[in-house]
Structure formats: structure tokens, C-alpha cells
Computed example of a mutant assay.
Amino acid sequence: MKFAVSSKGNSISDTLKNKIQTYLLDFGMELNEEEPDLVITVGGDGTLLYAFHRYSDRLNETAFVGVHTGHLGFYADWVPSEIEKLVLAIAKTPYHIVEYPILEVIVRYNDGGREEKYLAMNECTIKSMEGTLVADVEIRGQLFETFRGDGLCLSTPSGSTAYNKALGGAIIHPSIRAIQLAEMASINNRVFRTVGSPLILPDHHTCVIKPRNDVDFQVTIDHLTLLHKDVKSIQCRVADENVRFARFRPFPFWKRVQDSFIGKGE
């Protein structure tokens, strides 16, 4: 099996990365950073997000597993003291693949057929670079509302525990193929009105955001911040691709939610 190891870049993570590589090479596995079957990330959820984007062109072939060296990871479920156990599991145990839906974002421009496609594991946010965002929101080709406010967030089920949760969005189990649209500080008064609640769209529904004025947009794709000019529309839907995680032991979603936000209690 071909593998790669991605590190957060601090001394603890780099040391663990070198140890994992050495152990796996000793077991006869092949280090291949270009076409890995398995990517082990060492650091935290941000490190896994970076690895996801690095290998986003081969999601059908590459699976991920994370080791967290800081706070509890939502995606990274192994800890440094378990490195030997993880390496043995990788070398000796057939792993179970768990697939989570991700978000496809297509930005189209006014100058014709040019478009940019992105994949997000957590979310995409859309903001105006010049004050209030004013945009029509279409769902399945029909105008749903004209949004006025700070911005919009479209998240995946696995990303529903991130920025979406801070916006008052629902937490969605990643077995549900859907995306969620949440508002950022919408303007609601006697003149302007939005639905004011997060929307959960199934995988056969497409959401298109069309600006009502000629402004530049700040679009984030997970940790990436992009400036887009002359935007005609931003289309969001459940992607055809999935992100694949290698599971060597149970890692229940609701247990992660409980550990991340509630704790064990008394």
C-alpha cells in the first residue's frame, strides 16, 4: 500500500510524522506523496483539511486518517500515545472506509463561459467586499429570496459543527447527503425580509446565489480565502465526490459531537 504523511509543521507533529514514516517503511509499505492510497495527517483538523485539498483530485483513490497533537480533533481521532497501535493497524488490518458528502462550488463570471470549480469539506462562505451582501438566492432554479446581510454560509454535514454551528445552524449526521444554507446577520424589517432560518437541501437540490449589484466577492472554501470579481453566480450543491476516511476502530459521530461540545459531565 502506498502512503503519505502530512504534518502541521511544529516540532511534535514533525517528530511523529518521521516516526510513522519509519515504522510503515519497516513494514514494507511504499512512501508515495503523489499517489497515496492512505494519507495520515498529524496535527489537527486543519492539517487534515489541507491534506484534503492537496489530494482533492484523487478522492476516489485516497483515504485519510488523522492524529491530533493538540486539542481534540473532530476528524483526527488518534492521539500520539497510540502511534504504534495505529501503525500496526495500518500494516496488518484491512481498514473500513467511511465516506462523507462534500460541497461543490462553481463560480461563474459575466465574461462568458469562464467558471471556477471548488470542493469544500467543511463550508463555503460568501461575503461582499463592499458592505452589505445583496443577492438573489435560487433553489432548484426558482427565486427563493433576496438576501441582504453580512453573508451566507453553505456547509456540509461534517462541516455543520464548524462555522455553521456558530451561526445557529443545525448539526447534521454525515450519512445524510445534504448541504445547509445559513445566514450571517440578515437584514429583516418592514421592507426587507429573508426566511431567517437555516435551510437543509438534499443532494438533488442546487442553490445558486446571484449578486444584485456589481461588487467584488470574498469567497472562502474551508481555510482558503479567495477574491472574485465580475461574478455572475455562485452555484452550490452536494458534490458527486466524497471524502473517504480510513477507520480502524469505531468513531461514532454523535460521540464526537458530545466530546467536542458537551464533555463527559460530572
Rank of each mutant, 00 (worst) to 15 (best):
S155T: 04
S155Q: 05
S155E: 02
T156M: 10
T156G: 12
T156W: 09
T156K: 12
T156N: 13
P157T: 09
P157A: 08
P157Y: 07
S158E: 07
S158M: 10
G159E: 07
S160C: 10
T161H: 10
T161L: 07
T161V: 09
A162K: 02
Y163T: 00
Y163H: 15
N164F: 01
N164G: 01
K165P: 01
A166L: 10
A166E: 09
L167P: 01
L167A: 11
G168F: 02
G168L: 00
G169V: 05
G169I: 03
G169P: 04
A170N: 13
A170G: 11
A170D: 04
I171T: 04
I172D: 05
I172N: 08
I172E: 07
I172P: 07
I172W: 06
P174V: 06
P174S: 07
P174C: 03
P174Q: 07
S175T: 15
S175H: 08
S175N: 12
I176K: 06
I176V: 13
A178M: 04
A178W: 08
I179Q: 03
L181F: 09
A182W: 04
E183N: 06
E183L: 11
E183D: 04
E183S: 08
M184A: 08
M184Q: 10
M184N: 05
A185M: 10
A185N: 12
S186Y: 04
I187V: 15
I187H: 10
I187F: 15
N188W: 05
N188V: 15
N189M: 03
N189K: 02
V191F: 11
V191N: 05
F192Y: 14
F192P: 07
F192S: 12
R193G: 00
R193H: 13
R193I: 04
T194D: 00
V195T: 14
S197V: 15
S197T: 13
S197H: 13
I200S: 03
I200D: 01
L201R: 03
L201S: 05
L201I: 02
L201Y: 09
P202F: 06
P202R: 06
D203A: 11
D203Q: 15
D203I: 03
D203H: 14
H204Y: 12
H204M: 02
H204R: 13
H204D: 14
T206R: 09
C207R: 00
C207K: 00
C207Y: 00
V208I: 15
V208R: 14
V208D: 05
I209F: 00
P211I: 12
P211C: 06
R212F: 01
R212V: 07
R212Q: 11
R212Y: 03
N213M: 04
D216S: 13
D216F: 08
F217C: 09
F217Q: 06
Q218A: 13
I221Q: 11
I221R: 13
I221K: 13
D222H: 04
D222T: 01
H223E: 12
L224C: 09
L224A: 12
T225D: 15
T225P: 04
L226T: 02
